[in-house]
């Protein structure tokens, strides 16, 4: 186990591959990615969609109306829009979770981004609103749920990050508890860590991972 709460990159990679195996069994769509320009550095990504509520105020008016765009279609075989979700204007938010190893902190770091259907990023406040109440309270009180915005280390685009400064500390405590219980033979750092911090930002790790 991780008595110190930290991991070497080699140990991270080992647990990452094991995590992917477990994900495959569970049917959780995690993908293996390689850092750009550094083929040996692996990281994990997972896309997820969530229904969100349509906020008329947030939408920009379509400025593309009243122009002749040169397309006319008459298609009876297409589901007509008014049948698609009887009047309720649902939108979806696309989340993307990345698990990346931090050399400085020697722990994995959870990055995520949320965007609308057209790629426009969703602000942190709206991300909060989509966090279940029970977890929102944790965000207020638990220091390892500290969120910041960072540039993605490999993609260079803005991502939110659960700050890694308390990860080792938290994992050290978890490790001492499970050690006492003697139930750590098949422990995977990523499973333990993600199932603890993930739900706060809408990422769930089903129990199938630890079976």
């Amino acid at each position: 186990m991780w008595k110190t709460g930290i991991l070497s990159y080699e140990a991270f990679e080992h647990d990452l591959l094991d995590f992917l195996e477990r994900a495959k069994k569970v049917g959780d769509p995690w993908n293996l990615e390689y850092a750009k320009g550094r083929r040996k550095v692996k990281y994990l990504t997972k896309p997820q969609v969530q229904l969100g509520l349509h906020k008329a105020s947030e939408e920009e008016a379509d400025t593309t109306e009243d122009t002749n765009w040169g397309v006319e279609e008459d298609d009876d075989d297409c589901v007509q829009s008014e049948h698609q979700e009887s009047g309720v204007n649902r939108v979806f938010l696309k989340y993307e979770y990345h698990v990346i190893y931090s050399v400085s902190y020697s722990v994995p770091v959870l990055y995520f981004t949320a965007s609308r259907q057209d790629g426009k990023l969703v602000g942190l406040e709206e991300v909060w609103e989509n966090v279940p109440d029970v977890y929102r309270e944790r965000l207020e009180h638990e220091k390892w749920t500290f969120l910041t915005q960072q540039e993605h280390p490999y993609l260079g685009v803005p991502f939110y990050q659960l700050h890694p400064c308390h990860t080792a500390d938290m994992m050290k405590r978890v490790s001492s508890v499970t050690e006492q219980q003697g139930t750590h033979s098949s422990a995977n750092y990523l499973v333990t860590w993600l199932s603890t911090v993930g739900p706060v930002v809408g990422l769930n790790i089903p129990t199938g991972y630890s079976l």
């Binding site: 920009e60 379509d62 593309t64 122009t67 765009w69 397309v71 279609e73 426009k120 685009v157």
Partner: peptide, 11 residues
Amino acid sequence: LAPRMVDLSAS
């Protein structure tokens, strides 16, 4: 039947 437009200046 018209195009979509997204303003990504914020990001």
